[in-house]
Amino acid sequence: MRIRATVAALSGALAITALAVPAAHADEVEGDTAISNVVVNGGKAVVVGPTATKTITVSFTVKDASGVDWAQAILYHGANIDSSDSGAVANSSDHRATCTAVNATTSTCKSTFDMEPGYNLINKVAGSWKVWAIATGKDADYVQKDNAKSFSVQRASKLTVNASPEPVTKGKTITVTGKLSRANWETGAYAGYSAQPVKLQFRKNGSSTYTTLKTITSNSTGNLKTTTKATADGYFRYSFAGTSTTPAVSAGGDYVDVR
């Protein structure tokens, strides 16, 4: 069966920044084998810091009237697996999923994958990734999906805040500084995230709700600085809504005593 040879080739070793694969045909199906309910990382975005490898789980359901023989998933970044520029194969020795029978026709299949900064994660591959998947029945029926599920891989973000002076006289000017940064997978450190809109927010003492005072833009090194008037005791923070490559983050509130 041609598909078996394709999968064997796809299971080869990863290059440093690219998944070495031969031409993988687009979606194919023969017989009644079906893949459904694909879940990556519990349905949450995969957020990875600058150095630590993040291991994620991918699960999916396979059905075939004759019973499920085996299944496999591969993660990749790119328009399709043929032109992918990075990827990950499952951690199992044969790169196949572990499939557990639910009944005579249905199995739940799972694999774990390592997302490693500086290996299969470089800065340009942050964003949308896809799951390539195949499953076969005991009667040699099979299904192959080029994009069984899309998911997000993001560079971890950090945000700081400092409001001063403290204490301050009511009506006087408060200067609020901070920094927006995100993981750089190539240097193994956090670096400033420039030209991003960030909200300055205030929560009055005794309240549980932050109100946006203004929106400013991070500078070329990710730094933030603005001023506001002291009106009441409370907490100032910066809040970033996130992008496709970087998750949302809010700084912890910095309390200012207004007298």
Results as ranks from 00 to 15, higher is better:
T57N: 13
A45L: 08
A79R: 05
G42I: 07
I56N: 03
F60V: 03
L75A: 12
D64P: 05
W70P: 01
K63D: 06
I35W: 03
V68Q: 09
S86R: 04
T55N: 11
S36D: 10
S84E: 09
A79I: 08
G87M: 00
D64R: 06
H77Y: 14
V40S: 03
K54C: 04
G43M: 13
G87F: 00
V29Q: 15
G42S: 06
I56G: 02
D69E: 08
V62D: 03
I81Y: 13
K63S: 13
S36Q: 08
G43V: 14
W70T: 12
H77R: 13
S66Q: 10
V47C: 12
V38A: 08
T57V: 15
V38Q: 06
T53A: 11
S83P: 03
T51D: 07
S86H: 03
G31E: 06
G43D: 10
D82P: 06
V39T: 10
S84R: 08
V38D: 06
A65E: 13
T55D: 09
S84G: 10
K63V: 10
A65M: 11
D32M: 11
G49F: 07
V47F: 12
I74V: 14
N80Y: 01
T61F: 00
D82S: 14
S84M: 11
T53W: 03
T33K: 03
V58D: 04
S83V: 10
A88P: 12
V62Y: 06
L75H: 10
T61R: 01
G43I: 14
T55H: 07
N80I: 01
A79N: 07
E30G: 14
E28D: 06
D32Y: 09
A71M: 01
A52R: 12
V46I: 02
D82Y: 06
G78Y: 02
V48F: 01
G78W: 02
G49K: 08
K54F: 05
F60H: 14
S86Y: 03
V46W: 01
G67Q: 10
L75W: 13
N41H: 14
A52M: 09
I35A: 05
D85I: 14
V48T: 01
S83L: 04
G87R: 00
A73W: 01
I56D: 03
E28W: 03
G87N: 00
K54R: 14
K44R: 14
D85E: 10
T57G: 07
K63E: 09
A88N: 13
G67R: 12
P50H: 07
N37T: 12
A71L: 01
V48H: 00
G67S: 13
N37D: 15
G78L: 02
T51N: 14
E28A: 13
T53V: 07
S36W: 04
A52W: 04
D64W: 05
K54H: 09
D85Y: 15
G43C: 13
G42N: 04
K44Y: 13
T51E: 10
S36M: 03
E30I: 15
V39D: 07
D32Q: 07
S59W: 05
T33Q: 01
V46G: 00
N80S: 02
E30L: 15
Y76H: 09
V40F: 09
T55P: 08
G87Y: 00
Q72I: 08
S86A: 15
D32F: 10
G78H: 02
V40G: 05
V62N: 05
I35L: 11
N37I: 11
D82H: 08
S83W: 01
S66D: 10
